[in-house]
């Protein structure tokens, strides 16, 4: 019971945080996305920041506004509190790396040391179904102008990601669809017949009540405006 109580709390905190990010992306005001200091941020909040990953800083990243130092301190604490274990899955390593990159960018003068980029071998020869699932989990990496290994791997397989988007929509997996859709707004050579713009609207109407879906769609909207990745 205790465990499920904790996971419900965490899930609620993740949803709240995602809602704050969505509001900030829509309004342009992101000063109150993260708690205003490490003292106020309890374990559940820190865990929620870790779950949402680099997207907790997304408003600052996409809107190119200076970071709020107090919120940044919370973000840094979350990065440091949850380092990937030696046997962590590639997506865990990469999402942690993405947080480190976001932190480093937001505070280039800070003392935080950026870890080395993890490998992408696990995506070599991956089926389009698995590839899309993994990329959707790593949607915080889908940002304009980046050149990391996952982004390069995604850029080589646009049609496969588009297939994965269709699969996710068909299966009513709105989080995966929204994450894949966010990648597709950046990738070159998306098939015209996909109807991505209408597809994202469809996902929003069907699953946009979920803040984690709404966050990806809002990110996609901003990315579509800022232009392609490669």
């Amino acid at each position: 019971m205790e465990q499920s109580g904790t996971s419900t709390l965490l899930q609620g905190a993740v949803q709240d945080l995602a809602s704050s990010v969505v509001s900030a992306l829509r309004s342009g005001d992101h000063t109150h996305v993260l708690p205003a200091g490490t003292e106020e941020a309890g374990d559940v909040t820190l865990a929620a920041v870790r779950v949402l990953g680099a997207d907790a800083l997304l408003p600052g990243t996409l809107l190119r506004t200076p970071p709020d130092p107090a919120g940044l301190a919370v973000f840094r604490k979350a990065v440091e509190a949850y380092p990937p274990r030696a046997d962590a899955a590639p997506t865990v390593r990469w999402s942690h790396w993405a947080m480190a990159r976001a932190l480093h960018r937001a505070d280039p003068s800070g003392t935080f040391e950026r870890p080395d980029e993890p490998g992408t071998g696990w995506l070599d020869g991956a089926s389009w179904q698995f590839l899309t699932h993994q990329l959707a989990v790593l949607a915080p990496l889908a940002l304009p102008g980046e050149d990391d290994g996952v982004t390069r791997a995604a850029g080589r397989r646009t049609v496969d990601v588009a297939r994965g988007f269709v699969r996710a929509v068909r299966r009513r997996d709105w989080r995966q669809a929204a994450g894949a859709g966010r990648w597709l707004t950046l990738l070159p050579g998306v098939p015209e017949t996909l109807g991505l713009r209408a597809g994202l609207e469809f996902v929003e109407l069907m699953g946009g009540q979920d803040p984690q879906v709404a966050l990806q769609l809002e990110a996609a909207r901003l990315l579509a405006r800022t232009g392609a990745l490669v």
Binding site: A162, V166, R167, R170, P191
Partner: peptide, 13 residues
């Protein structure tokens, strides 16, 4: 071309 692109998704489904 359309079928080459999308048929794999429908088959999978």
């Amino acid at each position: 071309d359309y079928l080459r692109t999308w048929l794999p998704v429908w088959i999978d489904d």
